[in-house]
Design a binder for these strands. Structure first.
Lengths: 213, 213
DNA sequence: TACCCTTGTGTACGATGTCCACATTCGGAG
DNA sequence: CTCCGAATGTGGACATCGTACACAAGGGTA
C-alpha cells in the first residue's frame, strides 16, 4: 500500500522544474478527490521531494491549491474550445453564433461530468472565478471560460440574435444556470444520471437560458 | 485568545443533551467559516466535553457534519417559508402561485447572502441534496427546500400558469439557475455586490426562469 | 576561483481525527 | 433497596497534516 506510488528518484540535488511538477501532481490528486485531496505532503511526495521544498515555490498550501485551480480552469477553457471547434458548419452567421454560445454551456457541462474532481477544484472557494482573468487560467485561445462566454454573447448581439439592451449582465444569467446544473449533476440529486440523460438536462437548461435571456 | 470561548462547566457527569449541543455548536462554527470550520475538536470543546465524547453520538466527523448540514438545510426551508408568508395578498390564484414560486427563489438567495457559511454547509458534498427528503432537513411546514420548490411548481400548473407538459423536471431548471447565482454571489465574481444589486440580480435570474421554463 | 543566492533537507511543534482501555452514572431486574 | 449492565464521558496514544527554523548543496557571477 505504501510503496505503490511512483518514486521518481532524482540523482541531481536540484529538481529542475519543481514548481510545475508540483502543480502537475496536484492536478493528478485533484482529479480523483477534488480540492481536499491536494495535500501538500502528498504532492511533494509524488514529486519525490521533501514537504518543505514546496515552500520555495508557494507561500502555503492555499497558494499551491490556487495554482492547481488555475490550471484546472484552463482545462475547462480547452474543453469549451474543443466543443466549439467540433461544431458543424452553420447556415448563417446567426446560427453560427447560437452554436458557439450553446457550445460554451455544453463544453462546460461535459467537463463537469467527465472530470468532477478537477471541476470542483477549478471553482473552489474563494474567488477562483474572480481571478479568472489571469492568463494562467486561459485555454489555447488565451481566453478564460468566462471570457469565452462573454465573446459568445457579444457574437449573439452582433448577429442580431440577442437585443443589445439585454446584453449587460447576461453572462451572470447564463453562467448561473449552467453552473447550477453542473453542481446538481456532480453531487446533487442528479448525480447518477446516465450521461445521455445528463446531456439532455443540459440541453433543457440551455434552452431555458436562450428563451429567458 | 485561548480563553475567550464559553466554558459551560458541567457539574453533572452526564451532559444530558450532548447530541443537540454538538449540532448547535457545529452550526455556530459553520456560520462563520463554512463546513471546513466544523472541526470535531472545536465542536466538543465548545460543548465543554472531551473530543471522544462525540463518538458516542456520531460515527465520525463526516456524520457530525452531515447532521449540521441537515440543520442548515432546515434553516433554508424556514427562510423560504418566511419569504412566502410575508407575501402581500395577490389579485387571483395565478398571481398568488407566481408569487409563491418567486418567493422560493428569493428566500433561497436571501439566505445565501445573509448566511453564506451556513449556506455552504447546507449544500456541502456529498448528497446533502439527495438526502433532502429527511425530515431533519425540513422547515416549520415539514417541507424541505426542494419540496417547497416542487409544491410551488405544482401550484403553477394548477393555476394554469405553467403548461403541464413543461412540469416534469422543472425543479432542476429552476434550482440550477438560482443555486448557480447563489454560488456566484457567495464566492464568485459577484461576491461583493451591494445587497440591492444582488437582489436585482436575483430578480433577473428568476425572470429568466419564468420566461424560459 | 571564490562567494552568495537559490533551492532542497532535517528536525520539530501544535493541531487534527480516531482508536483503545477505563471511569462514571442511570435505570431496571431481583 | 440493591446490584449490575448498558449508555455515556474521560484519558492517553498514534499517524498525519501544515508549517517554522536552521542547515546543506550547488549554480551563476564577479
Amino acid at each position: 500500500m505504501t510503496a505503490e506510488s511512483e518514486k521518481p528518484k532524482r540523482d541531481t540535488y536540484r529538481h529542475g522544474d519543481l514548481r510545475n511538477a508540483l502543480i502537475k501532481a496536484g492536478l493528478e490528486l485533484a482529479r480523483e478527490g477534488g480540492p481536499e485531496a491536494v495535500v501538500l505532503r502528498a504532492v511533494t511526495r509524488q514529486a519525490g521531494v521533501v514537504p518543505n521544498a514546496a515552500y520555495r515555490h508557494f507561500a502555503d498550501r492555499a497558494a499551491l491549491l490556487h495554482a492547481v485551480s488555475q490550471a484546472a480552469i484552463a482545462r475547462v477553457a480547452r474543453t469549451i474550445e474543443a466543443e466549439q471547434a467540433a461544431l458543424p458548419p452553420a447556415a448563417d452567421a446567426a446560427a453560427a453564433a447560437r452554436g458557439r454560445f450553446r457550445a460554451v454551456g455544453t463544453g462546460y457541462l461535459r467537463f463537469a461530468q467527465e472530470e468532477p474532481g478537477l471541476f470542483r477544484t477549478a471553482f473552489h472557494v474563494p474567488g477562483d472565478l474572480a481571478h479568472a482573468e489571469d492568463d494562467t487560467a486561459a485555454g489555447g485561445s488565451g481566453l478564460t471560460p468566462y471570457a469565452l462566454l462573454g465573446a459568445a454573447l457579444d457574437n449573439l448581439v452582433e448577429t442580431g440574435v440577442l437585443p443589445e439592451d439585454r446584453r449587460p449582465g447576461a453572462e451572470f444569467l447564463a453562467w448561473s444556470a449552467v453552473h447550477g446544473l453542473a453542481v446538481l449533476l456532480i453531487d446533487g440529486p442528479l448525480r447518477d444520471l446516465h450521461p445521455t440523460q445528463a446531456h439532455d438536462a443540459g440541453r433543457r437548461v440551455i434552452d431555458m437560458v436562450e428563451r429567458g435571456l
